[in-house]
Design a protein around this nucleic acid. Structure first.
Lengths: 226, 226
DNA sequence: AGATCATTTCGACCGCCGACGAATCATTCT
DNA sequence: AGAATGATTCGTCGGCGGTCGAAATGATCT
């Protein structure tokens, strides 16, 4: 019935839920706790909101450890938020300027792992080189060769444990980057090695010259400029 | 603040308001009473909803006599409804097929007057020929020449009274057609003369060959085909 | 196993918003 | 002018939904 559109409207009609959706507009997956913060409500309230958003097919949830990561259910949802922002007065807040958008698209942190163009290219290259291979579900299994590479990089990861590496669908690239503990460790190590650097306070990440050289060298890939 | 988008969401988050918006999706202007019917609420309730929709810039209102006609505030609003319908299950109800849309764009009834391409061309031609001229506000003032033309057509309209002819912004054409008592009388007379004919039960109107000939002849205009 | 943290469920409270009856205002028709 | 019709305002009621405290669940770390 036509009633159904009002259900969707009601979902975005709450301030707390709207703040959550806006926070997820860049395709990041955020845990419930962080969404409670941005929504400025208690964790209990946030949980109720998130349940409704998932039930309403506006969000999808991916459990990962003791966290539960929520992300927009798809581009259609982003379109809806954009259509709403057009009608809303003073909507400029989350309008990213194109320059910054390009920055985000090229490299950014997806919570604690590397996303964007660099993230997906890294993931692809690693699989081409046989460092890890797809396992069941969205998981990756790190190979012997991969373990060596990680060790040489200074990363120790318990590759025996299930779920140490997971595929995460990248918002802007529509391809997968690597998430899970492995993704987190890689991200941290790249920061330590000075291959990438955080920009400002946000999620944007800059690939350093050193980082570009090392990645292209070690993984035999070519990253596009900027 | 980002809160503003939730205000828009809340507006479409109510079933009655959603039914109103859907009823207005084709660009028609409907009076409050009719919108109360489609929304299935009392006139008082409908009035409250309409006030909110106008305050929220989703609708605009045009008083005309004792009626108040409401219409969507612009294409952006239609886009929003469409974006919502994409996310809503079973949204097909109000999806217009393109063929019918073309028909509506060419000629249709705007409640009781002629709208669409034919409507705006008629209005323009009449003004070029000096049958009526813009008066203050959105009103038209029928000239002596116009009164003669109307009388020859078999229409008697009290041209002395204010508001006997008003400009109505056409949804599809973005130009004005003539509304008010004059518009209503013209529409009725055109039907009687067989210049136009209603299609089915809806608001679509067909321009007959006779009608095309007479209008193009009398008003020295050329209407595009179909 | 116990401790800790993230998250969810349950339960209760409260406020807001949509509903309509009655009355008022505005306009048109006779 | 008076009646009739359309629309809005006012006031009130009722219920849905957002909020958080308390407690349960699940997962990880030592």
């Amino acid at each position: 019935m036509e009633l159904e559109i009002s259900r969707v409207g009601a979902l975005v009609g709450d301030g707390a839920r709207a703040r959550m959706l806006i926070a997820l507009m860049d395709g990041r997956a955020l845990p419930a706790g962080k969404l409670a913060l941005v929504a400025r409500v208690s964790p209990q309230t946030a949980s109720a909101h998130l349940s409704k958003l998932v039930a309403g097919r506006l969000l999808v949830v991916e459990p990962e450890g003791k966290h539960r990561y929520y992300r927009l259910a798809g581009p259609k949802v982003a379109s809806l938020i954009e259509a709403l922002s057009v009608l809303a007065p003073v909507p400029r807040l989350f309008q990213r300027d194109p320059a910054d958008t390009n920055g985000l698209r090229f490299a950014r942190s997806c919570y604690t792992h590397l996303a964007g163009h660099v993230g997906v290219e890294l993931n692809d290259a690693a699989q081409r080189m046989g460092l890890w291979v797809p396992s069941r579900g969205k998981e990756y299994k790190v190979t012997e060769k991969g373990r060596d590479w990680l060790q040489q990089l200074g990363i120790h990861v318990n590759t025996a444990r299930r779920g140490s590496a997971r595929a995460c669908l990248d918002w802007t690239e529509r391809r997968h980057h690597v998430a899970g503990p492995l993704g987190t460790l890689l991200f941290k190590r790249f920061l330590e090695l000075g291959w990438i650097a955080r920009l400002h306070e946000g999620r944007a990440v800059r690939l350093t010259h050193r980082g570009r050289f090392e990645l292209e060298q070690q993984l035999r890939l070519r990253l596009r400029r900027s």
